[in-house]
Computed example of a mutant assay.
Amino acid sequence: MELRRLQVEDITPAYVGWLSDPEVTRYLETRHSAQTEESVRQFVARMAQADDEFLFGIFLPEGRHIGNIKVGPIRRYHRLADVSLLIGEADCRGRGYAAEAIAGVSRFAFAELPVEKLSASMYAPNQASAKAFIRAGFRQEGLRIGHYDLDGKRCDLIELGALPEDLSRAEKGAA
């Protein structure tokens, strides 16, 4: 698997299709607005120019784009950034790519950015995402009860965080 900064040239009909697929967007805020090729182009172009947000494509060795992962925005005063991701290709979910991408982007953030802590959050029913973050070294830090509306019902929000030593511990445990 390879992570590389996403460019407008990486936008394909499949990528735009992920953002219209209710299964892919079930736990993403992007589900609340229609996504078009133009809106995706604008977003990717903005991310490619940003100095406080880094959008990476997740690519298999043969070049297949299977998802995205983003670190940022960076809150420089606190040396903190968020991490979020999606695996768009259904046949690539549950195969460890998310945890691998999370670990990779976390290593990048701690080594290359003015960041000393990473955070992530997800809808509580999205256990696959929570497990991927935990496998990569994140720890659960909080639970916001009834924080979001999901399909007309209140839904808890899981909050996770990682410090550099958390990732080191996870990498040692995987060896």
Rank of each mutant, 00 (worst) to 15 (best):
R31Y: 07
E9D: 14
L150D: 09
V105Q: 04
H78W: 15
M1I: 11
F108G: 04
F59K: 10
E171P: 00
G152R: 08
F54R: 05
D52T: 14
W18H: 02
R107C: 01
R41D: 08
R4H: 09
E100I: 00
R75I: 13
D52F: 09
P13F: 03
A45I: 00
F54I: 04
M122H: 14
C155K: 11
P61A: 10
A111S: 15
C92M: 13
L85C: 01
A130S: 15
E9A: 15
F43V: 02
V115W: 01
E23H: 12
L113P: 04
K70L: 15
I87E: 06
E165T: 03
F110E: 04
R154S: 15
T30R: 13
T36L: 10
K117P: 02
A128R: 14
R154I: 03
L3R: 13
I66S: 05
D21H: 07
E141H: 05
E38A: 15
E62R: 12
L60T: 14
L157P: 01
E2S: 09
L85G: 02
G173P: 00
V105E: 02
E165L: 04
M47C: 13
R107Y: 00
E171I: 00
A130T: 10
R64I: 05
Y77T: 13
R26M: 11
A162T: 03
G161H: 09
G173N: 06
A130W: 09
G152F: 10
S168Q: 13
E9Y: 01
G88A: 08
A14V: 12
F56V: 08
F110W: 10
T36K: 08
K131E: 12
G173Y: 00
I69E: 06
G96V: 02
K153C: 09
E141K: 11
R5A: 14
G142S: 09
I11R: 07
A109C: 05
Y15S: 01
R154F: 12
E38K: 12
H32A: 11
L85M: 15
P125C: 13
D156T: 08
R95W: 01
S39H: 08
L80Y: 14
L3P: 08
N126Q: 10
C155R: 10
L157Y: 08
F59Q: 06
E89S: 14
